[in-house]
């Protein structure tokens, strides 16, 4: 479904100086209907990789194929068509400030489907109930807590029932109970829809309870790619230290 081959990317600081290599020769394959967890320390290139999958950033070299389309070579028009297959939750939620919670969630349906306003309203209410925000549809994002914004972002990312969904830190800022609920909800939906999901999260305890496969990034390189069980039992020192949260080790 998603195939990444030898992808590299460096950012050049605007004030000059050496380039910051954020991705270096990353290759991985996410099979269809797989819930893939992408883990790794901060600034290891996980979010950049997610943005590249959806065509928001171009790599310096390498290719990314999504459902047979090479994202790195696609025109803006082709990318627009391809993005109809995507739902995405951003790290900072990216809710539209000037829209209410209800309008934020309804926005993709209003823009991309022919559904009537009643049907859209029903879907929005159903999404809000799923993320435990019933009654919040009239609020503006500015009046929500960090966790509530995150849940609105999850509702917006999943409302079109897209076949590919990318989540960047879906549980950041949430309390443990809500966090667990969100992970279970996302897993439940993925199973029901058969969507291919790539999820970046620092909440490893919960992430590893829902993933099928896991990849670990470290300093721009993919240093591990395997099943969740393989990740949990890996003897690779960096993977072991990170997955088990050990203070002693190479990281």
């Amino acid at each position: 479904m998603i195939t990444i081959q030898s992808v590299s990317k460096a950012f050049r600081p605007s004030g000059g100086g050496p380039p910051n290599q954020v991705l270096e020769g990353v290759s991985l394959h996410v099979p269809a209907s797989c819930l893939y967890g992408l883990i790794g320390p901060g600034a290891s290139g996980k979010s950049v990789l997610l943005k590249m999958i959806v065509g928001l950033m171009k790599p310096d070299s390498g290719s990314i194929t999504v459902d047979g389309v090479d994202v790195t070579q696609a025109s803006e028009l082709d990318l627009q068509k391809m993005r109809l297959k995507f739902g995405m939750l951003f790290q900072n939620n990216a809710l539209f400030d000037h829209m209410t919670v209800g309008d934020n969630i309804a926005f993709p349906l209003r823009r991309l489907t022919d559904l009537g306003e009643d049907q859209i309203k029903d879907r929005v209410m159903e999404r809000l109930a799923h993320v435990a925000l019933t009654g919040f549809e009239g609020r503006l994002p500015a009046g929500l807590s960090g966790g509530q914004k995150k849940r609105v972002g999850v509702a917006r990312a999943t409302i079109t029932r897209a076949p590919i969904v990318l989540y960047d830190e879906p549980a950041a800022g949430l309390d443990p109970v809500t966090s667990q609920k969100i992970f279970e909800l996302l897993r439940e939906e993925q199973r029901a829809s058969g969507a291919t999901v790539v999820m970046v999260s620092s909440d490893l305890d919960r992430l590893l309870t829902v993933t099928d496969r896991v990849g670990m990034m470290y300093r721009g390189r993919l240093i591990f790619d395997g099943t969740t069980h393989e990740a949990q039992t890996s003897e690779e020192p960096r993977v072991r230290q990170f997955v088990h949260g050990l203070t002693e080790g190479p990281l």
């Binding site: 928001l56 627009q80 995507f86 995405m88 951003f90 990216a94 539209f96 926005f107 991309l112």
Partner: peptide, 14 residues
Amino acid sequence: VTEQLDALRVLAID
């Protein structure tokens, strides 16, 4: 800076 434009692009909106 809050990625709202990126969110529009991901929603296939120009």
